[in-house]
Amino acid sequence: MMSARPRASSEPPEMMPNLPRRLALGLPALLPAGRALAAWPERPIRLIAPFPPGSGTDILARIIAEPLSRVTGQPVVVENRPGANGVVGAQAAATAPADGTVLLMMGTSVGAINPHTVRRLPYDPARDFAPVGTIAEQPYILVAPPNAPGDLAAWLEAARGRDLTYGYGNAGSLIMGAMLARMAGLKVTGVPYRGSTDALNDLSAGRVDFSFADFGAGLEQGRNGRIRLLAQTLGNAFPLAPDLPLLASAVPGFDAGVWFSVVTPAATSPEIVRQMETALDRVVRDAAFGQRLVALGLAPMHMGSADFGRFLAQQIGAWGERVRMAGIEPQ
């Protein structure tokens, strides 16, 4: 004879005949949370931006917080935790409770560059976070003084055999310059600036030979005639500037850009991560949100949790090679 087994039923008294019906009906609410699918989110969400107010990461976080709040039904509060090129905020997120209430804005610097430039980094971007999904991407733009040859191939031909200087105001621009020198066979000397604006000002005046500009700033100054736009750095056409040549068309294999994503503490339950992934995907695919990205010079980037996890691993390896190419030592 088969032994009696508990069965899913709408008749609690038959399952537990010694309990009053009202108490038996209430038992599911008393079960430990792990026995059922997690209801997410049950509380307000903290979205940590690891850079200061007014930074690109902060602006993007505030743009995404409002529609994400609508989708989830809970307030999404942007919390700025700046310091050490994103290290402070990333560490805060990595050590936060894995209860579905904390998200981190992870960009290229925090996710792929810091592991190679920060000595004793207190977090591991692959181990300490669960990937949720990507938000947006943009390239750098190779730029030259306004009187430079306007054709990429002609500029490279004129540049070979000369001693060139390139201005950089951040780590990304420094690394791009070193990549170009190695891959195109150019002889270059980097000139550091306090920021990208100063580097572009000197470029416009002809004090340096080239630079790599952030997409928005470079496009604006190029359209104003202050600098010459030569190429963009992604390996595929960028929808916001489809006519801008690919640097890879003249320097095969050149493919690098800036991306933004959302992650959560690694121990967050897979079910909650799946719900986060669904919510983020709804926001990123919304047409109105896409228009707000375009206004910032960003294109929507659609990767779910699994695809982004693989992409992040690839990016960590690729940026490691680029950092070594630039001769940057961990500090």
Results as ranks from 00 to 15, higher is better:
residue 297 G to C: 04
residue 174 L to V: 06
residue 216 G to K: 10
residue 316 I to N: 05
residue 311 F to R: 13
residue 33 A to N: 06
residue 279 A to Y: 13
residue 175 I to E: 05
residue 36 A to D: 11
residue 79 E to G: 08
residue 152 L to V: 01
residue 110 V to A: 13
residue 13 P to H: 07
residue 284 V to D: 03
residue 143 V to E: 02
residue 309 G to M: 05
residue 145 P to T: 05
residue 125 P to N: 06
residue 138 Q to T: 14
residue 200 L to H: 00
residue 46 R to A: 12
residue 197 T to C: 00
residue 16 M to S: 11
residue 86 G to A: 10
residue 1 M to T: 07
residue 58 D to S: 15
residue 4 A to R: 08
residue 36 A to K: 11
residue 251 V to I: 05
residue 128 D to E: 06
residue 314 Q to S: 09
residue 209 D to R: 00
residue 142 L to V: 13
residue 1 M to A: 06
residue 199 A to C: 01
residue 147 N to E: 13
residue 327 G to A: 08
residue 232 Q to R: 03
residue 11 E to S: 08
residue 97 P to C: 06
residue 70 R to D: 14
residue 51 F to W: 10
residue 284 V to H: 03
residue 123 Y to F: 10
residue 3 S to Q: 04
residue 37 L to G: 14
residue 272 I to W: 02
residue 1 M to L: 04
residue 76 V to W: 05
residue 302 H to C: 07
residue 6 P to E: 08
residue 264 T to Y: 03
residue 313 A to R: 12
residue 105 M to Y: 04
residue 94 A to S: 12
residue 238 F to Y: 15
residue 169 G to T: 13
residue 226 R to Q: 04
residue 53 P to V: 08
residue 175 I to S: 09
residue 278 T to Y: 13
residue 325 M to V: 15
residue 58 D to K: 10
residue 307 D to R: 06
residue 81 R to Y: 06
residue 247 L to C: 06
residue 304 G to I: 08
residue 31 L to A: 12
residue 104 L to D: 04
residue 144 A to N: 03
residue 23 L to I: 09
residue 194 R to Y: 09
residue 7 R to M: 11
residue 240 L to K: 11
residue 296 L to Y: 06
residue 260 F to S: 09
residue 260 F to G: 03
residue 267 A to S: 11
residue 251 V to P: 01
residue 221 Q to S: 00
residue 35 R to A: 08
residue 82 P to I: 09
residue 317 G to Q: 15
residue 301 M to N: 14
residue 58 D to I: 06
residue 81 R to N: 05
residue 192 P to L: 04
residue 202 D to W: 02
residue 43 R to F: 10
residue 23 L to G: 10
residue 167 G to T: 04
residue 146 P to K: 00
residue 268 T to L: 07
residue 135 I to S: 01
residue 86 G to W: 11
residue 198 D to G: 09
residue 63 I to C: 09
residue 234 L to E: 13
residue 220 E to R: 01
residue 201 N to G: 01
residue 16 M to T: 10
residue 233 T to E: 08
residue 330 P to K: 00
residue 213 A to L: 07
residue 327 G to Q: 12
residue 145 P to K: 09
residue 262 V to W: 00
residue 1 M to D: 06
residue 158 A to Y: 07
residue 212 F to K: 08
residue 294 V to T: 05
residue 25 L to C: 11
residue 226 R to I: 01
residue 64 I to D: 07
residue 290 G to F: 12
residue 290 G to E: 11
residue 1 M to K: 07
residue 51 F to R: 03
residue 44 P to M: 15
residue 112 A to K: 11
residue 293 L to E: 02
residue 137 E to L: 14
residue 202 D to H: 09
residue 111 G to Q: 12
residue 261 S to K: 04
residue 153 A to W: 06
residue 82 P to T: 11
residue 268 T to C: 02
residue 288 A to N: 13
residue 108 T to H: 11
residue 164 L to K: 07
residue 170 N to Y: 15
residue 199 A to Q: 01
residue 280 L to V: 14
residue 263 V to Y: 09
residue 328 I to Q: 07
residue 279 A to F: 09
residue 35 R to Y: 07
residue 65 A to S: 03
residue 112 A to V: 11
residue 243 D to P: 03
residue 180 L to N: 01
residue 51 F to P: 04
residue 192 P to G: 04
residue 99 D to W: 08
residue 237 A to E: 14
residue 80 N to M: 00
residue 138 Q to L: 12
residue 178 A to S: 10
residue 266 A to K: 12
residue 242 P to W: 13
residue 125 P to I: 03
residue 91 Q to K: 15
residue 247 L to Y: 02
residue 45 I to L: 15
